[in-house]
């Protein structure tokens, strides 16, 4: 929980999640004072004196919220599955930053037989997916440009997030298996939920209404 009793600190990641979360926050009357793309500030104030934003790496959001350094956060389901969701609640699907986690590879790639080598950033999700199928695979952890791995012979397949599929296509790859749909969740620190309950519940219900009205349009 952020240290000030009456303040709410919201953790967001730069880029797509930030951009798509802004309209939802605006719907509950929260607007940042600065643009994180141009500002060098790590903590952004908002038009509401008791709310501030921290803009951090996507994979750090559950850590900040889980340990209470931020009260509320927005994190992709992919990140939550990968890094665990200890110490936090994930009560609301914001239906933003939507994509699919997929197994991808060359069009003729074999899914059977030998011990497949899988290049991915999502080692836990990939391991779970293949283990559920009873397949013994070797996971190769990469930090980016997964598409390159099969091309240069580093792996047989990749597990990655797919939005339009254009990057895969441009590199001669295609989606092979759907693992799960991914979107971003509103997450809340457990202790903050209890001690700042009225404030957080109001925020949650406001955002929920905004998500619903946006998706009913």
């Amino acid at each position: 929980m952020s240290k000030q009793a009456n303040k709410i600190r919201i953790a967001l990641s730069k880029g797509r999640i930030f951009k798509e979360t802004l309209p939802l926050l605006a719907a509950v009357g929260i607007e940042p004072d600065d643009d994180p793309e141009t500002s060098r500030k790590l903590i952004l104030g908002t038009n509401q004196p008791d709310v501030d934003l921290v803009v951090i790496r996507a994979t750090d959001v559950p850590t900040y919220v889980g340990h209470g350094a931020a009260d509320v956060g927005v994190a992709g389901k992919d990140v939550l599955l990968e890094h665990g969701s200890e110490g936090l609640y994930e009560p609301l699907d914001l239906r933003i930053a939507q994509c699919r986690m997929m197994v991808a590879g060359f069009p003729n790639a074999s899914m059977e037989g030998q011990r497949l080598r899988i290049a991915t950033k999502y080692i836990n999700s990939a391991r779970r997916h293949f283990a559920a199928q009873g397949k013994q695979v070797e996971i190769i952890k990469l930090y980016g440009s997964m598409e390159l791995a099969p091309i240069v012979g580093l792996s047989d397949l990749i597990v990655d997030l797919v939005e339009s599929g254009n990057t895969l296509k441009a590199n001669g790859l295609e989606p092979i298996e759907h693992i799960m749909d991914i979107s971003s969740r509103l997450i809340v620190n457990k202790a903050a939920w209890k001690m700042k309950h009225a404030r957080i519940k109001a925020l949650l219900e406001g955002v929920r209404a905004a998500v619903e009205s946006k998706n009913n349009e």
Partner: peptide, 9 residues
């Protein structure tokens, strides 16, 4: 039991 400065029980 919780206290304000701690994110866990």
């Amino acid at each position: 039991a919780f206290i304000e400065t701690e994110g866990h029980e």
